[in-house]
Nucleic acid binder design. Structure first.
Lengths: 184, 184
DNA sequence: ATAACCATGTAAATGGTTACATGATTAG
DNA sequence: CTAATCATGTAACCATTTACATGGTTAT
């Protein structure tokens, strides 16, 4: 599943410019499970235009470069449908922050705490972002996926909050850890 | 954070072959937040060998190609430490399955149910895999990250289980949805 | 027989990020 | 004045995936 497919998906919901599609990945319902930068969106749009999967209307604007509003075509809808019929790849998560926390013993105390705090703040932002979204107009599909993101972010935040003190303490006083632990 | 860094991380815990490193990404504690194939692991190991970050001992075996057991060097530990001091990139999740469920209305009823079932089964496998792991020898760092994976997978599974019926029903009978909903 | 596991590696192709290039408007 | 937002696009670089290449052992 590449940038082309996901752009086609966004356009199947409503017309959009490349700029607006990016915002969907940043602040919209896609933010939980997909991301793409301008460097992949614009070329994808251009390619699909040449393939007849989308059309484009240039809307001149005062003082700004013309907006290019893309719309999906019937051929585009067919291709999107086909793309949704291939076996999905497994989910792929890559988390540099978790790598760092995993090797937390190699960091200084304050560095480790900073990484932890930033990570927690980051997840809170993600959750806020999902919660800010107006879901009242959404189909059930979208509500379900949105709810999945909320559930996962909440679980992550809860784990971070519940274990923050223990995680940071354990590095500072390893002897105490052994003495305090019941064992078994 | 690239394959080199994460391989170095694995080797900082214990010596390993490329094959064994891959297994760590598949079934080990890294499975939640990192993945890499042979196509990136072997070249990374070769490059690090030439840079003096790791050493390699060839262990001949009966009937099989010689095992190459890699060990991290002091220079390797320094580089790893440095790599852990750059600002971490944001987490990146890519989920084809959620894209499919998001556009579930474009799939046939049985296809949609199949994607859903496979996704739930996949998450259960992931959770089982983490739970099978022996964590008793692990440091607190590792336990914390392991616990994060468990918490997130459990939340995802709960959401999938709790909403499966409603998700599938909503597509089959959209009129009923409207009639049943209290609104507001 | 067949599949899965052990074990390594390369080359081509794909895909994505980052830096570059441009430039007006609006809010602080 | 500065930063952010709106708005598009290319080129170079980087990283990863996939297919290819090899081949014995063990379990079903």
């Amino acid at each position: 599943m590449d940038t082309k497919t996901i752009c086609l998906g966004v356009l199947s919901l409503h017309d959009a410019t490349g700029y607006e599609i990016k915002k969907q990945f940043e602040e919209g319902p896609f933010s939980y499970f997909y991301d793409a930068g301008y460097g992949s969106i614009y070329p994808a749009l251009g390619k699909m235009l040449s393939e007849g999967l989308v059309t484009c209307v240039e809307v001149p604007q005062d003082g700004r470069p013309a907006k290019k509003v893309y719309s999906i075509t019937d051929a585009g809808r067919d291709v999107l449908r086909d793309m949704l019929h291939v076996r999905p790849a497994r989910d792929k998560l890559r988390s540099d922050s978790l790598v760092m926390l995993f090797f937390g013993h190699l960091l200084e105390t304050n560095q480790r705490a900073a990484v932890f705090d930033d990570y927690l703040a980051y997840y809170r932002d993600c959750l806020d972002c999902l919660n800010r979204m107006d879901n009242s107009e959404s189909e059930d599909d979208r509500c379900f996926v949105h709810g999945m993101g909320v559930a996962v972010y909440e679980a992550a935040i809860r784990h971070l909050e519940d274990n923050q003190q223990a995680f940071l303490d354990s590095h500072n006083a390893p002897e105490i850890k052994r003495a305090a632990g019941g064992g078994g």
